[in-house]
Amino acid sequence: MAHERDLDIDDAALDLILAGARADAPLPSAALLARIEADAARLQPAPPPRAEPRRSWLAGLGALAGRLALPAGLVAAGLTGLWIGLSAGTGADFNGASVYDSAFGLQMIYEFPALAGLLPEG
């Protein structure tokens, strides 16, 4: 009837209509989602390259000795001589403790384990 069309929708009825619409939200199509994903892949920055760990010159020396098939004992003896020469310049005693107490010494032991056997006690 005509007069019924003129009635306002009350708050309760409006809330009911809105709740029904909320539960029935329009969903995106699979094609749209595929397009969005393709855009994302196209624009995605490349992951940063993994940094190679820096090799010390000692490790490089070890690798070179390996390539040249030099006996490890010979390389270790050479390095021990180098260490004694460097230590002499500082006036420090050369012994096992002084090698283990320095970063350079520890690195030499790590790279050339045979060196440990050549160190004097102390």
């Binding site: 069309r5 306002d8 409006l14």
Partner: peptide
């Protein structure tokens, strides 16, 4: 919105 919807009472099943 309530005023605009009043024109659609029949479609809304509110007759």
């Amino acid at each position: 919105l309530a005023k605009a919807l009043a024109k659609h009472r029949e479609a809304l099943g509110l007759i």
